[in-house]
């Protein structure tokens, strides 16, 4: 007795392994909270009911790096916070992505001084930069969807074969 008898007449979908994996990666991408400054307020707003990021499978903001796939760096990163951020990034399981949210995280923003990293890409590799000071929740969601596009286009099997 196969599963078909229980479920009725199922169609068959053929696709590639990469597409299935990427589809599952994008639709349950759990972000890690990294609210460092004012931008964090917009990140919270993007989570809350008006904008509701859970429509894209991101309802769970994790406080633990070990349970998350995506780090949203929301705010300016000070020279003392940098090593902490890198350490948390290293603790995240692969595959992992980073969104630099706001001008400060992208390039230092208005804080061109000794205390702030001029862009979080000096510490961790960044996938998507979201401009704005602060970016509106729509902009963050747009950034997330852009990242989804990037992940869906990731041909990891082919890439691994190339590397060999």
């Amino acid at each position: 007795m196969g599963v078909e008898q229980k479920l009725g007449n199922m169609g068959v979908v053929t696709t590639t392994l990469e597409d299935v994996v990427n589809w599952s990666r994008t639709n349950a991408m759990w972000p890690m909270l990294f609210g460092l400054a004012c931008c964090a307020i917009e990140m919270m707003a993007a989570q809350a009911s008006s904008y509701d990021m859970s429509r894209f499978g991101m309802e769970l903001m994790r406080a633990s790096p070990r349970q998350s796939d995506l780090m949203i760096v929301a705010g300016r990163v000070s020279k003392k916070m940098g090593p902490v951020l890198r350490r948390l990034y290293d603790q995240m399981p692969e595959p992992k992505w980073v969104i630099a949210m706001g001008d400060c995280a992208s390039c230092g923003g208005v804080f061109n001084n000794y205390a702030i990293y001029q862009g979080v890409d000096e510490i961790v590799p960044v996938d998507v930069f979201v401009a704005g000071c602060p970016p509106r929740p729509e902009a963050l969601i747009h950034g997330v969807l852009t990242l989804h596009e990037k992940v869906k286009a990731d041909r990891f099997i082919a890439n691994a074969a190339d590397k060999k």
Partner: peptide, 18 residues
């Protein structure tokens, strides 16, 4: 400030921009 920083930031001759 982090221990590695050179100089003292609130001195007026400390560079403003970075």
């Amino acid at each position: 400030n982090p221990d590695e920083l050179e100089g003292h930031p609130l001195r007026r001759d400390f560079p403003l921009g970075y």
